[in-house]
Design a protein around this nucleic acid. Sequence first.
DNA 1: TGGCGACATCGTGAATGGTTGCCATGAGAA
DNA 2: TTCTCATGGCAACCATTCACGATGTCGCCA
Lengths: 371, 371
Amino acid sequence: MATIHDVARLAGVSSVTVSRVINRAGNVKPATQTRVEQAIEALGYVPSGVAQSMRSKRTRTLALIVPDIQNVFWTTVARGVEDATQSRAYSVYLCNTDEDLAKQERYLDVLISQRVDGVIIAPCSAAAEPMVRLRDRAIPTVMIDRRVDGWEADNVSGDSLNGARSLVQHLIALGHRRIAMLAGPATTTTASDRVAGYRQALAEAGIAVDPRLIHFGEYKAQSGAQMLARIWEAPSPPTAVFAANNAIAMGVIAEAGRRGLRIPHDLALVCFDDLPDASSQLFPFLTVAAQPAYEIGARAAELLFDRLEGGDALPPRRVVLPTQLIIRASCGNQLAHSNGHGLSLPLTDTPELSQSGLPSNGRATIERIHP
Amino acid sequence: MATIHDVARLAGVSSVTVSRVINRAGNVKPATQTRVEQAIEALGYVPSGVAQSMRSKRTRTLALIVPDIQNVFWTTVARGVEDATQSRAYSVYLCNTDEDLAKQERYLDVLISQRVDGVIIAPCSAAAEPMVRLRDRAIPTVMIDRRVDGWEADNVSGDSLNGARSLVQHLIALGHRRIAMLAGPATTTTASDRVAGYRQALAEAGIAVDPRLIHFGEYKAQSGAQMLARIWEAPSPPTAVFAANNAIAMGVIAEAGRRGLRIPHDLALVCFDDLPDASSQLFPFLTVAAQPAYEIGARAAELLFDRLEGGDALPPRRVVLPTQLIIRASCGNQLAHSNGHGLSLPLTDTPELSQSGLPSNGRATIERIHP
DNA sequence: TGGCGACATCGTGAATGGTTGCCATGAGAA
DNA sequence: TTCTCATGGCAACCATTCACGATGTCGCCA
């Protein structure tokens, strides 16, 4: 691949002059400039970012570290980061941790070696130790979705506490009293925040918290299924379940199906994070607290660029974005057990897929027909 | 950040010796080795990948360029690439083109400047010109999902032709004769391949192709809606629609809803690419030709690594992976118009979400109730 | 015991591709 | 004649590695 010296030789100037032309540093005669530009064109020369990074100590490279690139929430975050990044000619390394601390550490090692300018990370764990690599090297870091104990860095997240609170309030308003909380890993702040919101809503309604109804698992469908099974095999099962994210909710739905439980008839269900557009459009079923995923990504990138440009002078900032309660069908209209009869609105005569988009009234009793 | 020289000074050796320790090159006295390792530890030294790239001319960096990181198909591909890549300590730049050629070019420029070792790309266009940057520089490239005219590079894709053919055969078997084809951009080979499969299925069934039923748009929901509108406003509308990808299908569903068309009663629908798990689990509605997205990504990465290791000696390889026809509810059981009465199976008495997972019989008449 | 060769150990200098501070040259103006 | 300014080159620098050379050690043989 052509180097700046090849260009210089062809144009009959020194490499310094070529550099000046490329960087529009001035002090180059128009005729010289033209000769250099022609040589660049002829050789198809593109300056080596590697060599530039070597001198400048900047790689124009960021990393986005998320637990699950296949979850809509994270792909939407990624899209937000991408858009904010693209216009500035930065490149983004995408790293997928699977909530696996070892994987996260491997990635951090590679990224530190690659000398990324900054990192946007949803840490697997709230423990500070895995993150000291970043902090000690003063690598500009924005945490998203989660916090880390003892490290006040820039942070962008959805309002887990109030989102959880409003979901549980919604269930309570429908008459539910025994509400299970199926949370993510106890090591994540999203888990503790959502449990806190859950507790707060119950407390505000004067309902005692039954610790046997609170389970910590993983943000995965399989874990959701396991937690539902465990809860269902214990005495006095709940009438409603709050799943701490969409994957857990999918596991709950699968396990409920295997157990012949009907949602919402036998069990109401709400969760954090919306489903893919395709889901909510085709079949607006799950009542959710939707986080502004795109904005979380975009804002995180903005904070990071601020820091890259403004230096470390700024104090750490924390952005908490509101969630949106989207009421759909997975809770029915009211608690089936409490009014003595099953739900709900009469079926219309011709059941067909005929309207799409988010349900206008939010409470349409759209349910799945048992095959 | 500590350099190799800092380590050398602290350990009282030269930088070459440190390098030897790091790279386990041997010829280092055990005592020296220990001193060096202690110095590395004390300084928290991590070798600069930038400097290593400078010398070695390898960056241990790949790029994945896709049209839409928010579409499940592409995130699943990305996951496949990620998994194959992760174990080899390579990093992946994720680039999102939005099917925008200008954006793709900007990315290619940045990536060439960053000196990526290889590229996995779903090219926006089948034209060779945008890709010459890659070919001329002999950057190892694997194309996925699409081909480029006049450049025989490594290629991994789903079997668009036969996938399309089987979808249309399915519609024909249900009695459909007027089937619309809503394709992607005419500049993509997936569009032409899927149209070819469509034509072939019709020809095999002795059905004349009506060119007014074939439309080329974009792989976006909005485009799907527009194409359906155009087709529906023309004389003699179709009884079935073949959407060339999941996004187009979502647009068709939205537009059908706005026009009061019921699917499958008034219009059967099939499409290429599956929907997110959350969709197909919650509401197994759309009949699709599913591509093995994960495998496409994983295989593409394998081919790329082969080339990075084996050199350019290998001839270009082309991998075409079979698609899977997943029959769900969006075509009904047979053409409503052809047997004189609307569908279909009687409703069960209690419509509830009660079973999940892909429909076991595939033909469950699961439909959405009109609110 | 001295000399020589083989090998282990480790350093010097150059090279990678680009940018920057400083200086040299020459032309034109005052 | 002196000063200024446009132009452009030299050398150093960034972090690492490679080729090569310089020691030192040890064994073997005369």
